[in-house]
Design a protein around this nucleic acid. Sequence first.
DNA 1: CAGTATTTTAGACTTGTTCCAATCTTGGAG
DNA 2: CTCCAAGATTGGAACAAGTCTAAAATACTG
Lengths: 160, 160
Amino acid sequence: MGSEARTNQDEPDFAELLRGAKLRVTASRLGVLRSLARLSHADAETIASEVTSQLGSVSTQTVYSVLAAFVEAGIVRRIEPAGHPALHELRVGDNHHHIVCRTCGTTTDVDCVVGKRPCLTPSETHGYLLDEAEVTFWGICPGCQERGGTLQSRALLQGA
Amino acid sequence: MGSEARTNQDEPDFAELLRGAKLRVTASRLGVLRSLARLSHADAETIASEVTSQLGSVSTQTVYSVLAAFVEAGIVRRIEPAGHPALHELRVGDNHHHIVCRTCGTTTDVDCVVGKRPCLTPSETHGYLLDEAEVTFWGICPGCQERGGTLQSRALLQGA
DNA sequence: CAGTATTTTAGACTTGTTCCAATCTTGGAG
DNA sequence: CTCCAAGATTGGAACAAGTCTAAAATACTG
Ligand SMILES: [Mn+2]
Ligand SMILES: [Mn+2]
Ligand SMILES: [Zn+2]
Ligand SMILES: [Zn+2]
């Protein structure tokens, strides 16, 4: 033991993931990957502050460019639920779907029964060459249901 | 004939539609409705310029507030395909879906076999109370397929 | 047809994101 | 190791889409 290269048990080998994707290994990139492993469905700003708390600092622009590189390389998935900033996650390649809370925006994964895209085909493609069927379920999350039964909270809902 | 109230054959009675939705009848609102009848899936700016060409002028802000009122009243549907400004359409209440072109953004309706929301339910709701399953199909439209077969166009695709 | 509630408007502002050119870092060649 | 070119990071400006404001204009009610 002692002086051998320490492979941190806690986390998958992100450096290797990067190399595999032909991306240079940098502190910012490892930081973003570590953040994504903790936070599921995170927006750029949240990631930036998480990385900052790990490394001392990152610029927002770096986070944006790192995320763009990751999405391009296929190691991160980006979703853009209507009315929310883009969210990012490490879970790629399984074509899963999402449930988004109308009240608080919390986003939860739902497995896709099919598992590979496009998991659904419309009756009529209108000549399009389809590669993906993106499904977003909208509703109220358990937490918001509790707070949400009363008229009081309906007012709150409207106000916010 | 002659002096009786002229009900324009060409277009449905938008004034009536507005009154039915308890909304005041104004020139801007009629203009937006007329525009939406022509343009399917239009963004605020496109609508603004269409209304301007009809009435001489409208402010962008008016278009935004008119659209917000319409969506709130349920006479207009808004969709927000990832990476595009919000689109608006008159076709409401049938829970239809959309195909969006990855290259040019053209958006086409697809009928929903079920017709009322939520037309789909995930295997596991995670406690959410669901009211809608939004389905967006992504692919390449016929036009872009033509332009798109060659390497030349793959470069173009990457550039734009 | 007057009065009030609602709508329209210009303009400032916010949020999320991209572009830029200068500076720093990484991984590979020597 | 050490050096260097390709690639990554940065602050700052710029951008796109949309929201907020408070004042002026207009639509419906009585
Ligand atoms: Mn997910
Ligand atoms: Mn439609
Ligand atoms: Zn919620
Ligand atoms: Zn197209």
